[in-house]
């Protein structure tokens, strides 16, 4: 690389090069083009900022507040928001601001765990069913149909009651109910590309089915699955909060946002902040994921281009 590349203009030129000189440059150039497309959508940037904010808050929780999310001051219970306790106190005299900040970690953990379980399972089930076809497809898709036939929250409820309440079981239950739509999407995409000439060409060069699935089919299904995951995140957070609200997700005294709303419900009319502020947190983060997903769809989904 020349010295000119170290200026911003040099970098931009390097990224936009029509004739990249290395694998890395080609890949970064593609990423840069996607980023430029993404940047044109102001709402998507808002969504990205909210999600980055969530990450920062979760990472810096001990820096942002010097209190413990579990420390109780019973004398101060249900104290209204003021300069000292920005979001007020809950029914056990715990600082709601602190609890929301630590709750971000739980929300983030749920979201990440569900995503890393659901996306690979859905992708693998869907692409293998679509690629191999035949009875393999029939069996996998009927299993998918069975899962799809139940309302998600109800099925998650059934799983949590069977597995026992707790945040880990809530994650497993949500993941078990969330993968079928991904399998459907991945299968549909696979059906459109499995007869493409580039798949035939890969077979002609001797590629195994496994290689074709992982290096030809899945990369093409990945973008629609990523879009779907981000759009689904809001729903996943709401289901996790719903399970928490019903007492089947995170258990007290864990500062999970859904459980916080559940405990604040009793004081909603007189001490509105106890339930409303965690609710606003859920709302903001869900909105952030939705906006981000919309923006990503514009950039990643080949059908939109």
């Amino acid at each position: 690389m020349t010295t000119a590349a170290h200026t911003p203009e040099g970098w931009r030129e390097w990224l936009n090069a029509a004739a990249p000189r290395s694998r890395a440059q080609a890949r970064l150039g593609q990423a840069y083009q996607s980023w430029r497309g993404f940047r044109r959508n102001p709402l998507a940037i808002v969504g990205l900022c909210i999600i980055l904010g969530l990450l920062l808050v979760a990472a810096l929780a001990p820096v942002l507040t010097n209190q413990s999310p579990f420390a109780q001051e019973l004398a101060e219970r249900l104290r209204a928001p003021d300069g000292e306790h920005w979001f007020g106190m809950d029914e056990l005299g715990r600082d709601i601001f602190t609890r929301i900040i630590y709750g971000a970690r739980i929300t983030l953990m749920i979201v990440v765990l569900v995503a890393i379980i659901v996306a690979p399972v859905g992708l693998i089930v869907g692409t293998t069913a679509g690629y191999f076809g035949g009875w393999f497809d029939v069996v996998l898709m009927r299993v998918t149909d069975i899962f799809l036939a139940f309302p998600r929250l109800i099925l998650a409820l059934a799983f949590v009651s069977a597995l026992g309440p707790g945040i880990e079981n809530a994650v497993i239950a949500i993941a078990l109910t969330a993968w079928p739509p991904y399998a459907r999407i991945a299968r549909a995409e696979t059906l459109t590309i499995r007869n493409a000439d580039f798949i035939s060409a890969a077979r002609m060069s001797g590629a195994s089915s496994l290689r074709i699935l992982f290096s030809h089919v899945i990369p093409l299904c990945l973008s629609s699955v990523i879009v779907r995951v981000t759009l689904d995140m809001a729903g996943i957070i709401l289901i996790a909060a719903g399970l928490g609200f019903l007492g089947l997700g995170a258990q007290p005294p864990s500062p999970e946002w859904g459980a916080m709303i559940a405990s604040g419900r009793k004081f909603l009319l007189d001490q509105w902040w106890v339930a409303t502020l965690p609710g606003l947190a859920i709302c903001t983060v869900s909105l952030g994921f939705n906006l981000l997903g919309d923006g990503l769809r514009d950039v990643l989904d080949p059908k939109q281009q």
Binding site: A196, S200, A201, L220
Partner: peptide, 16 residues
């Protein structure tokens, strides 16, 4: 080895 009819369909869109 084979060369296909449609060069727009015979190259993987995400592969260099």
């Amino acid at each position: 080895q084979m060369v296909f009819q449609d060069p727009y369909g015979s190259l993987h869109p995400r592969h260099t």
